[in-house]
């Protein structure tokens, strides 16, 4: 069983954190991952920076631009992560746009991920039907779980289809937006969370977009298995660096004044 699948069986709400590899500094990648695990985070999405991140808002865009300026590449990221499994036990997912993966070679990318101990991939611009017909067998032969997104606009039929193709969790985008665009949830999100919960899907759901603190984390995980935080974490390391990550994680897991 893959680390992601094992983690999903734990009887708790999961906190997953996204960060951009090579940001704020090029050599921060490994320490960021270690600090996140030590602070009590359940799962990590390692962002492979891209020049044209279509689905991302200004915060993650800016971190990607800086990471690329710092010299981050797929090859360098893999080099940095070479021995990551000596110290880190929690599930690691690489999140990146499709073009850099295509240029690396999809199979070579998957193989390297397996060698290092990466558990899954999130590729927002690789559509589920293309994945299904062209790449599924490659991903699976290297033990990788591919994670798909759904949004409030996704039809029930398509959600069922995505559920049938998935074998980890479903990334539930909380609202029609780019990352970091909205904070908090309204009645629309509540209705959407309940609608999905009622569908009784095969795969658990983890909510992303719009989560930035204890309150929104709690809200998002009322009906879902866990939640993902990206932009709010990037903002934290932008202002505070990577040595106070435990403070950030605490502010999400525990109610503070």
């Amino acid at each position: 069983m893959n680390r992601i699948q094992k983690k999903l069986q734990e009887n708790k709400k999961l906190l997953s954190i996204y960060f951009t590899a090579g940001y704020p500094n090029i050599d921060d990648t490994v320490t960021t991952i270690q600090n996140l695990e030590n602070s009590g985070v359940d799962m990590i999405e390692i962002g492979l920076p891209f020049s044209d991140p279509l689905a991302d808002g200004p915060t993650i865009q800016a971190s990607s631009t800086q990471a690329l300026k710092n010299g981050m590449t797929s090859e360098l990221l893999f080099k940095q992560l070479k021995d990551i499994r000596d110290t880190v036990k929690i599930p690691l997912i690489i999140m990146g746009y499709f073009n850099p993966i295509l240029q690396f070679g999809v199979e070579a990318f998957c193989k390297t991920c397996q060698d290092i101990g990466i558990d899954g991939l999130i590729i927002p611009d690789l559509p589920v039907d293309v994945y299904h017909s062209e790449y599924k067998s490659i991903f699976e032969s290297y033990g990788l779980i591919n994670i798909f997104l759904i949004t409030p606009q996704t039809s029930d039929d398509r959600i069922r289809y995505i559920d049938s193709v998935s074998n980890g969790f479903i990334y539930m985008v909380s609202s029609a937006s780019t990352t970091g665009a909205k904070s908090g949830f309204g009645p629309e999100q509540d209705a959407y969370f309940k609608r999905i919960a009622k569908m009784d899907l095969k795969n658990p759901q983890i909510v992303g977009f719009g989560i930035s603190n204890f309150k929104t984390f709690k809200h998002a995980t009322t009906h879902a298995k866990g939640a993902i935080i990206g932009s709010a974490f990037i903002k934290h390391v932008t202002h505070n660096g990577i040595n106070t990550i435990d403070q950030f994680t605490n502010s999400i897991i525990h109610e503070t004044i």
């Binding site: 797929s74 850099p100 295509l102």
Partner: peptide, 20 residues
Amino acid sequence: KEGIIHGSKTLLMQTKDGQI
């Protein structure tokens, strides 16, 4: 080189690493 830009698989100018 072949790759993805703005949602289309086509020829595009990019680095070896796939940055546009």
